[in-house]
Design a binder for these strands. Structure first.
Lengths: 342, 342
DNA sequence: TTGAAAGCGCTACCAG
DNA sequence: CTGGTAGCGCTTTCAA
């Protein structure tokens, strides 16, 4: 392994100069830079992670993480928070601190405000589960332009200057749900879809993948109706009950969003447990319980922990070690969970 | 964060002494050690990973990894090797080298010989996919006693002095296959099992989990017959064909081991594609192809990459950073893969 | 524009 | 048994 010291020796300059060249800090005569660059190429130099890591501490880095309220009806984000916490703990040793802020799904102004707040606190990088709204997109563009790297998590805004996205490929996840439903259900499957909202991209993407795959490959499955529960359990109970009452032919449910317990309660309420094959998302504790009780037949998870942890890893690599993410999209695995492998 | 220097200052000794106390290197007067220990407790000292990591280089560590021939009929190990390679590359920077050796499934003497060879080369830790044979177990006990940590991967020998096992929970994986088969197949499922051998623990464990779960929970599934293919495709073709001919009532196959292509070829040969629901293991390229072609309906993966990478991580933590594994069993995820989430 | 040196936290080695 | 010192590779700061 070649070190900076070695490069310095070979090119007849000091380590400081090599460092300046390597990190484009300027203040180097072009010819000198040229010479050093040449040596770097020649010996195929690659910086040592260990050395850089040790030196990070002096920078006293601070990252911000904005996500959705952990007290919302969707406990999914609790697992994300565990991922954040794990990484924050780990990075503490390097003098890195992580500031977490909670937004709500319906308030882009709040997101902008939280971003400003974190910027004022002097963060060196931001991870965010953004609402795809123009004012949020603009704000992200702005801070990216100011040199603060942004990583989106769980939900994405393309072309907002962010360096990477960590989260599910929702379309593919919808396709997987369709494939799974085809395997599990029979020749004459009539499915009802319960979604959170048509405006939330991840929900509509899942439905698009689900629908497209059915239309393309599974003529045995027929989508009977779609209802909206606004991610709310009480509402979910009502709309699900209504749907099943109006369409007694439905024998499968595709639960796209939160409000899973409410929907399942409706099924139970109508005495349809076991009669209706239910596929849902995520492995929050309440959902796992329903799987163990044979109410939900399969649930599709999306590495929640990773969605909290990975963005921070990417940011640390970027600002601490000057390593750019090796790709733009870090798709989480689409994990099919049944009772036995929960 | 408290450093060794700080501990030294607080307890009025030198850093060297603190280091000796921290790492039980001896040569410290009991009273001095006592005093230092007290300070360490008081300030809740925890060593810095970064610092230790940087210092690893001086040790010029070398690890050995013994697994099964990558040219065997089971390409599963190719993915394991990718995991090894990735970690070996990464650790190169720390001056750590990894020596890989290939054994065969049926030759415990060879394993012992390879272990000796690596020991003679001066390895500081060993990862191994052991054959569960007394002479291998004895050899592992011996080197563990000599202070060389051993991590088993993919296959395990309990109580051989190894510090951890990385790999599948085969019993649970068999249970999952049963659960999956119940979901996918109908009321009257008659399954044929094709296994590699009754002597290979992971095969028999999978079958035990599968059978137990069926007996306990799924009376609709009936196991008709079990055949052995010795992990060989040609043999697999023959025994599968024979089984399906003798038992035309079979409508599902549980492929426990390698020889997947051979079994599928037999199904095709009899014109039964689509008629027989096939569940297999792993996501080697040939198997993925069969899933995409709707021959195999689902396959269960076991994080092959991790089985190569994680043992090396554990060894480096152990001998390089003096961090003991936080648990004994690192079970890989039981991943259900269908066409859409392959 | 460049060099020299200190320091990040830990380990290893030599001298007492 | 103990202290002091020189690294591991990189960054940063102060002089020149």
């Amino acid at each position: 392994m070649v070190t900076i010291k070695e490069i310095a020796r070979l090119s007849g300059v000091s380590r400081g100069t090599v460092d300046r060249v390597l990190n484009n800090r300027g203040s180097v005569k072009p010819e000198t830079a040229e010479k050093v660059m040449q040596v770097i190429k020649d010996v195929n130099y690659s910086p040592s992670r260990a050395g850089k890591t040790l030196a990070i501490k002096k920078k006293q880095l601070k990252f911000g993480f904005i996500l959705f309220s952990s007290t919302s009806s969707n406990p999914f984000f609790l697992d994300v928070v565990r991922g954040i916490q794990a990484r924050a703990d780990f990075m503490k040793e390097y003098g890195v601190t992580v500031e977490t802020r909670y937004a709500t799904l319906d308030n882009p102004q709040l997101q902008v405000q939280l971003i400003d707040e974190l910027i004022n606190q002097g963060i060196n990088g931001l991870a965010i589960t953004p609402i795809n709204h123009p004012i949020v997109a603009e704000k992200l563009k702005e801070i990216a332009k100011n040199g603060i790297p942004v990583v989106t998590s769980n939900s994405d805004i393309p072309n907002c200057g962010r360096i990477a996205y960590v989260g599910s490929d929702y379309y593919k996840s919808g396709e997987t749900a369709a494939g799974l439903m085809n395997l599990i259900c029979g020749q004459d499957t009539k499915v009802g879809i319960i979604t959170g909202s048509h405006w939330i991209l991840c929900h509509s993407e899942r439905i698009a993948g689900f629908t497209d795959n059915i239309n393309k490959n599974y003529p045995n499955i027929q989508i009977i109706d779609t209802a909206i529960n606004n991610d709310d359990d009480a509402e979910s109970f009502i709309v699900t009950r209504k749907m099943l009452t109006e369409h007694p032919e439905i024998n499968a449910l595709y639960l796209v969003a939160a409000g899973i317990q409410g929907a399942c309660r409706a099924v139970d309420d109508l005495g349809l447990r076991g009669k209706i094959k239910i596929i849902s998302y995520d492995t929050t504790e309440p959902t796992c319980k329903l799987v163990r009780e044979n109410v939900i037949i399969a649930t599709i998870a999306q590495q929640a922990f990773t969605q909290g942890a990975k963005p921070l890893d990417i940011l640390l690599d970027y600002v601490g070690l000057n390593i750019k993410p090796e790709k733009e999209y870090f798709y989480t695995k689409i994990e099919i969970k049944i009772k036995e492998n929960l």
